[in-house]
Amino acid sequence: MTGRFNNKVVVVTGGTSGIGLATAKAFSTEGASVFITGRRRDALDAAVEQIGGRVTGVQGDMSRLADIDRLYDAVQQKHAQIDVVFANAGGGDFAPLGSITEEQYERTFDTNVKGVLFTVQKALPLLKDGGSVVLTSSTTSISGTPAFSVYSATKAAVRSFARNWILDLKDRRIRVNAISPGVTETAGLNELFGGADHAQGTKEFLAGQIPLGRIGQPEEIAEAVLFLASEEASFVNGAELFVDGGQVQI
Results as ranks from 00 to 15, higher is better:
A89I: 15
E220M: 06
L71R: 10
G31F: 03
G208M: 03
D69N: 15
M62P: 00
V11E: 06
R41H: 10
F109L: 15
G98T: 09
Y105I: 12
N164C: 02
G144K: 04
Y151H: 14
F227S: 03
N237M: 09
R163Y: 08
L44C: 13
R54M: 14
F205N: 03
V11R: 10
S180H: 12
I221E: 02
T139I: 15
I142R: 09
G91V: 12
N164W: 04
S99Q: 15
L192S: 10
N88C: 10
F35P: 06
G52P: 05
K114G: 13
D197Q: 06
G182R: 05
N112Q: 04
D197V: 07
G208Q: 04
L206R: 15
G216A: 07
Q50W: 02
I166K: 07
L126R: 01
G90H: 12
G53Q: 14
F242C: 11
I68Q: 09
V150C: 09
I221L: 01
G246R: 03
V9M: 04
A233W: 12
G115R: 07
V113G: 06
V236H: 06
V113Y: 07
E231H: 08
D45T: 15
F27V: 14
G182T: 07
V85H: 02
K8F: 11
I210P: 01
T2C: 08
K203P: 01
E223R: 04
E219P: 05
V120R: 02
R70N: 15
S143W: 11
F242W: 11
T119G: 04
I166R: 08
T16Y: 12
G57L: 14
T140C: 10
F86T: 00
S138C: 05
T29M: 02
A89P: 13
P181M: 06
K25G: 09
F148M: 14
I215R: 00
F118G: 03
R41S: 13
G194A: 02
A26K: 01
V10L: 13
F109A: 08
V9P: 02
L167A: 00
G92D: 06
F118A: 04
I215S: 02
A95V: 15
F235A: 11
G3T: 01
T111A: 09
S143P: 02
G213I: 07
V34R: 12
E232N: 13
S28G: 09
V183A: 01
F235V: 14
A46V: 13
V134G: 00
S17N: 04
L127D: 03
L189C: 07
D244A: 13
Q104S: 14
L228D: 00
L206E: 06
T29H: 01
K25P: 05
V225K: 07
G131C: 12
S99K: 15
N7F: 03
G182E: 02
G194D: 00
L65E: 13
D83S: 04
Q247H: 13
E102R: 12
I250Y: 10
D244S: 12
A43T: 14
T136M: 05
Y72Q: 03
G238E: 01
T108M: 07
